[in-house]
Design a protein around this nucleic acid. Structure first.
Lengths: 97, 97
DNA sequence: CCGTATCCCATAGGATACTG
DNA sequence: CAGTATCCTATGGGATACGG
């Protein structure tokens, strides 16, 4: 569990995984979704998720560059947890933001 | 989900809830379990969990004082999530500590 | 477009000392 | 025993500027 906690440490990891739930997304799309994340932070969080094996990073050799992120099988196995957290939030949440 | 994340923010919350899973525990017991948490930090984490309605704080009017912490129904509803995190950790974890 | 490199600051949380 | 009250530091992450 300490491991799971580690893997999710970081302000944006949950939301990123949640966003990749249905389909892959480009860097810019993720950035747009999390509209007050800085570019540097986003890169860092994505690299950590990649390093921990939860997401793939797919670089297309184009100009301008395109990079797509998607869930690995391991990342997919994490989705049920996120779903439970989501419904817990819906049931008890007093809307933080 | 942002709410769920908020509720769990803090280095020790997971472990505290996990420890209270089966039965209530005294302040000192929790402190002993998390053997490198400072007293101040523990108090803070417990107060937050209490404020967020996940645990009860039961003060016994004795000398020396005895305080027991236990899960609320809401806290219990959180257990399945912890269990999934635990098994995810067991499956993929590369033992952090 | 998707980064990397710096700098800079707020905050979580540890250490320590003291009380009812 | 189970707290408070201070102080202090490490680190996460934002802002900004630049690069392939």
């Amino acid at each position: 569990m300490a491991y799971t906690q580690h893997v999710l440490s970081g302000r944006w990891k949950f939301l990123i995984l949640w966003f990749l739930k249905t389909k892959e997304h480009r860097f810019g799309e993720i950035k747009a979704l999390l509209n007050d994340i800085s570019q540097g932070s986003l890169t860092k969080q994505l690299r950590e998720l990649e390093k921990d094996g939860l997401i793939y990073r797919n670089v297309f050799p184009e100009v301008p560059p395109r990079v797509e992120y998607s869930l690995t099988p391991k990342g997919c196995e994490f989705l049920p947890i996120l779903e439970m957290m989501e419904s817990f939030g819906l049931k008890f949440g007093k809307t933080i933001d």
